[in-house]
């Protein structure tokens, strides 16, 4: 379970500092996959980073009593000058899997299907290749909760299918928290939804309700 208790977050900059997240108070139960919805800039990625422990709340706290992955996505996570293989090795080591490094490398190499590029520096990768590598890497560990920040958005069709299947295979052992604008993916993989609007979070037990609420807010905007 992930317990988010009255979390506030803002970023300081030169033109004031409005709350990006304001009084987020949620419990994400064990085994429930959640989709995060909201307009660009609504704070979806920020919330995901806070859950991952990459960033810290200004007020409130987040309690994780399970193994949570890093946010799998496009930005960051790899050292550009190191090869894919070296990055995988490094990340396996910091996760304390020293004895199974070779197994993890073999798994990622097989899953990512990027061929010889695995031994090229990551900065030469296309965004699709990076996403394949990051995705494969996260699956090599047995996390209880996987965080995905548009991880599959840039993948081709075959990869999207593969990723979806990989996640479906994990159902029962692991759950997901996904930021995505692909509503089909959300419907496919998530049970519950969180709709973020102006720094506030609204919890929906069914993802369809969250998507509906999001759509309504967009229509109201247009009207």
């Amino acid at each position: 379970m992930i317990d988010i208790r009255h979390v506030y977050k803002r970023y300081h900059n030169h033109h004031g500092s409005n709350w990006v997240l304001e009084d987020i108070d949620l419990q994400i139960p064990k085994g429930v996959s959640v989709g995060l919805l909201g307009r660009n800039g609504a704070g979806k990625s920020t919330l995901l980073r806070l859950i991952a422990g990459m960033d810290y709340a200004d007020k409130g706290e987040i309690i994780r009593d399970c193994q949570v992955s890093w946010p799998i996505g496009l930005r960051g996570g790899f050292q550009g000058s190191m090869t894919g293989r070296q990055n995988v090795k490094f990340i396996a080591r910091i996760h304390g899997s020293e004895h199974s490094v070779q197994k993890i490398i073999a798994f990622v190499e097989d899953f990512a299907e990027i061929g010889k590029a695995f031994d090229e520096p990551v900065k030469t990768y296309s965004s699709g290749m990076r996403s394949r590598l990051g995705f494969g890497l996260s699956l090599a560990f047995n996390f209880d909760v996987y965080l995905s920040d548009e991880a599959t958005a840039v993948g081709d069709k075959a990869f999207k299918e593969k990723a979806k299947k990989a996640f479906k295979d994990k159902v029962g052992q692991a759950s997901l928290i996904i930021v995505s604008h692909g509503e089909d993916i959300l419907r496919d993989l998530c049970q519950a939804g969180i709709w973020l609007e102006r720094g506030r979070a609204h919890w929906f037990d069914r993802i369809d309700d969250a998507i509906a609420a999001y759509h309504q807010s967009l229509e109201r905007k247009q009207a």
């Binding site: 990459m54 890093w70 996570g77 790899f78």
Partner: peptide, 9 residues
């Protein structure tokens, strides 16, 4: 090493 701060460890 900024890229590596993605990992909370």
């Amino acid at each position: 090493n900024r890229a590596l701060f993605a990992y909370r460890q």
